[in-house]
């Protein structure tokens, strides 16, 4: 709750500044002051969203009975804040490859894996186009011929994705699946994405989301192992792992497990 409190304090400070510049704008009639006030309001909204995400996670953590039941996921609160069935975040490199992923449940995690393997989908389009993306029902397959049909097989009917940016630099995307009709639409989703971007780039919070982030360590280890056995470099090995996973209908983590156990299937 300390982090939520800190985010709320930051929101409060931004609101005080926004009030000040709005008063200045009223007395001076200067558009400049209104522009500054708008920026502070937006920052305040971002910190408030961030506080809500932290609070939501803290509440789930407090309610968690422990034991063998799966622990709470930070992304569950993100899905809830967006009024969606599930939500997934991917942090990407400058070449738009996924560096880290986090998802609220198995279905959104599987959808993210599809994007990783197929190199197409809503998250990728949101980062490449630097703008919001949405598709539902038949549009999914029309827009993404390989991703769409498989997403439908996962039981997903609609997806919305927005880029996550810090200071205009795109660091990834946030996708929500099967959203209820969100009154705020993209604007609300973009605000949650801003809050999430703020959280993951905050040196105190970081990108781990309380253990909910997946770096795909084993997949990258397997790419190294395969490259060592076959030559050809890790990029080619990673592509081979993705192709194997796609052909067998399993995740890249499963393929990685086999490679690290010494099995190489058809890759040798």
């Amino acid at each position: 709750m300390l982090r939520a409190r800190a985010a709320l304090d930051r929101a409060g400070r931004e609101e005080v500044k926004a009030d000040r510049y709005e008063r200045l704008a009223a007395s001076s009639g200067r558009e400049v002051h209104l522009g500054v006030a708008r920026r502070h309001r937006r920052m305040a909204a971002c910190h408030r969203s961030s506080a809500q995400l932290q609070e939501s996670f803290a509440r789930r953590a407090a309610e968690w009975p422990g034991g063998s039941r799966p622990g709470p996921r930070f992304m569950t609160g993100v899905a809830e804040a967006c009024g969606a069935r599930s939500a997934a975040m991917a942090l990407t490199g400058t070449d738009r490859t996924q560096l880290l992923v986090a998802a609220s449940d198995g279905v959104s995690r599987a959808a993210q894996e599809l994007e990783f393997v197929l190199d197409e989908g809503p998250g990728r389009d949101a980062t490449v186009g630097a703008g919001p993306v949405s598709a539902s029902a038949d549009e999914l397959a029309e827009r993404w011929p390989r991703y769409g049909p498989r997403a439908r097989l996962l039981g997903l009917n609609a997806v919305m994705a927005v880029p996550m940016s810090v200071s205009g630099c795109c660091i990834g995307s946030l996708a929500i699946f099967d959203p209820a009709s969100v009154p705020g639409g993209y604007a609300e989703l973009a605000q949650v994405a801003d809050a999430l971007a703020e959280t993951v780039t905050d040196p105190e919070d970081g990108p781990e989301l309380y253990g909910g982030a997946d770096h795909r360590d084993s997949v990258h280890q397997a790419a190294g192992a395969l490259a060592s056995r076959q030559g050809g470099g890790t990029a080619a090995a990673l592509e081979a792992i993705k192709a194997w996973a796609f052909a067998e209908g399993v995740s890249t983590a499963v393929v990685a497990g086999r490679i690290l156990d010494g099995a190489t299937g058809g890759l040798n």
């Binding site: 560096l99 660091i171 780039t201 770096h215 397997a222 190294g224 192992a225 490259a227 060592s228 056995r229």
Partner: peptide, 24 residues
């Protein structure tokens, strides 16, 4: 901050790949 985050995540991937190379 954005650059530091991307750099740290990219480094981690290369380190995991190198571990895989050496382990094999």
């Amino acid at each position: 901050r954005a650059e530091q985050l991307q750099s740290a995540l990219t480094s981690r991937i290369v380190i995991e790949q190198a571990k895989g190379v050496l382990a094999t």
